[in-house]
């Protein structure tokens, strides 16, 4: 089994960085089993192609604009994944979808994929998460742990 937990987001835009904050919490508190890699993807794209190739499971953690109250947890998997990227609910409108499309073209796409997210409250300038979103970081950490 080859699994990647990928947190994406921009740390200088408050709640936008929640995916990366979850990765930081996992790195700090939870040793990963063999075969599981944690990646702080930030807002990058093609740089990740190598590490995302030929995965059994890709778990993406991200801020997701689902039009729900701030702090609402969102889970997207299975057939919803492609449309998630088509409708661009994620602020990372171009980066990750391009990587996944390239992997598909190479025949190296993940066998299984789930996106765990939370509705952001604000994406203003700043390094801190808002309290509503920060409170969901431990919950997302548990969700990731249950997934791997």
């Amino acid at each position: 089994m080859k699994t990647v937990v990928l947190g994406i987001g921009n740390l200088i835009m408050q709640d936008e960085g929640v995916g990366v904050r979850v990765i930081e919490a996992l790195e700090r508190d939870h040793p990963m089993p063999a075969g599981v890699t944690l990646i702080d993807g930030g807002t990058s794209a093609m740089e990740m192609l190598d590490e995302l190739s030929d995965l059994d499971h890709l778990i993406v953690v991200d801020a997701i604009n689902a039009g729900k109250p701030p702090g609402t947890l969102v889970r997207i998997e299975g057939e919803e994944v492609p449309s998630f990227f088509r409708t661009r609910l994620s602020p990372h409108q171009i980066g990750l979808p391009d990587v996944l499309a390239s992997l598909e073209f190479l025949g190296a796409q993940p066998k299984k994929m789930v996106i765990l997210g939370v509705q952001p409250q604000t994406m203003e300038l700043g390094m801190e998460l808002t309290p509503l979103v920060a409170a969901q970081v431990p919950v997302l950490v548990d969700q990731v742990l249950a997934e791997i």
């Binding site: 921009n10 200088i12 930030g42 807002t43 794209a45 980066g95 300038l125």
Partner: peptide, 28 residues
């Protein structure tokens, strides 16, 4: 709008590079 400059004011100059590499995902 870009405002990373505002975030950096008052910080330790030795830390600036870890923050500025978050400005952009392509040009970290």
């Amino acid at each position: 709008f870009r405002g990373v400059e505002l975030i950096l004011q008052g910080r330790d100059p030795r830390d600036a590079w870890t923050i500025t590499q978050r400005i952009c995902g392509v040009c970290t």
